[in-house]
Design a protein around this nucleic acid. Structure first.
Lengths: 226, 226
DNA sequence: GCAAAAGTGTTAGGAGTACACCCATGC
DNA sequence: GCATGGGTGTACTCCTAACACTTTTGC
């Protein structure tokens, strides 16, 4: 069968990743600088056009690898962006994904065939991006706030474990609120999501903190307890 | 700018709606019978290929209108399906949406230019559909279960209001579990989501039931109360 | 010993759960 | 009056929220 209707022609799919980290209490997103048109020399999220012979996740991981060097990251579907004019080249529908990664565990490629720079950018410094990528980041960040409350997505931020004060600061940075130390600890422990490693970590001049790690477990609580 | 790379050609977007209702305690989904290839004479969800000059929601509503006659329905993005071979015609990525509608308030078109029949089908009788539509229904139904616990999506099932026993049966049908009458009522009222209309509805031989209605309010609770 | 930050416990209030009784209707 | 099903209240438990003291370290 052949498609002849011109209304169906000239369409493509973008797969795009909002990759977040939390660095010293600041939430950052990975941006790359584009080498090519459209939006040459503009900052943008990692991602690109899907090939017609690859599945969505394969294309996404290929794009992430090509443009950032990151090869080992879990990405979750977040949203879809399809305004007719969102790309100046052709009709592109963007499928957006979210990932979280430990900034210290990954070497970001500063330059690739298609990018001239790559920077972890604090959320409040994000502006003037290519395409509708600012909107995509906003939608992903909202979802991230939700996900840290309903999943173990932060496990990938702490591959070697974490102390309670550390992870609490991460929650506070992402949610933008202050939390009570004692209740936070009790709540996180009660979820059966993390476990004590038996180790401690010492910072200068302070009492050593216990190190916990995430269990290999998916949490997906529902709210409404009827 | 022109796209010459063949890897980017021959792609299209499906917009697809899983439209659910609850009819006498049975959850049903709207299926249409296709008149044309591919999957001629197969049952399928309402939906079709997006035009390259229309936004996603516009294309979706056009398809829903064309193939079912339904013109007034809220649809929510649910999921994306993009396996390379999900369509035999060309590379199609499907964006799936979810809607709920009162079966008594809508006249479904039994035949259209592209469909030869339309039926509200109980979920457990759904089988042998076109494309990956069974998978799409499964994903949408899971999300529906979640949404009735976290949003006022059921408002569209009861445009004229509802009684507590009625809506409880609806929750039970969708969730597949039994609920305690007294606690269900208290919980639903405590959410500040519905209000008493002051009216009652009488069934034969029974005490009249109060009629409630949904407030115009979006509910999006988070779970984890830290 | 002192400052800084980590660890722990207690209590009051609110939400969830389980359960029993009264009430309005049609026949 | 009786069967059917709708409406309401209460006690127990558990989770949450607010809050203060003790412990360990480096200097």
């Amino acid at each position: 069968m052949e498609v002849t209707n011109p209304l169906y022609r000239g369409q493509g799919i973008h797969v795009i990743a909002s990759i977040f980290t939390v660095d010293h209490g600041v939430v950052k997103v990975l941006l790359i600088k584009r080498k090519n048109e459209p939006y040459k020399d503009k900052w943008a999220l990692v991602g690109g056009a899907l090939y017609n012979n690859e599945d969505l996740m394969d294309g996404l991981k290929r794009e992430v690898k090509e443009k950032s060097g990151i090869s080992d990251i879990d990405l979750t579907l977040i949203d879809v962006f399809g305004k007719v004019d969102r790309s100046p080249v052709m009709r592109m529908v963007a499928i957006s994904y979210l990932g979280v990664i430990d900034i210290n565990r990954v070497n970001i490629l500063k330059e690739t065939q298609k990018t001239s720079n790559a920077v972890w950018t604090p959320l409040d410094e994000v502006s003037n991006l290519a395409y509708d990528h600012e909107e995509i980041i906003a939608s992903s960040f909202e979802k991230l706030k939700h996900m840290i409350l309903n999943s173990n997505i932060l496990a990938s931020l702490f591959p070697d474990g974490f102390t309670m004060p550390e992870i609490q600061k991460t929650y506070e940075a992402i949610l933008g609120i202050q939390l009570d130390r004692r209740n936070f600890r009790r709540k996180l422990l009660s979820l059966d999501l993390i476990e004590d490693t038996g180790n401690t970590q010492v910072f200068a001049g302070r009492k050593p903190a216990k190190v916990y790690r995430f269990k290999d477990k998916i949490l997906d609580i529902s709210v409404f307890n009827i």
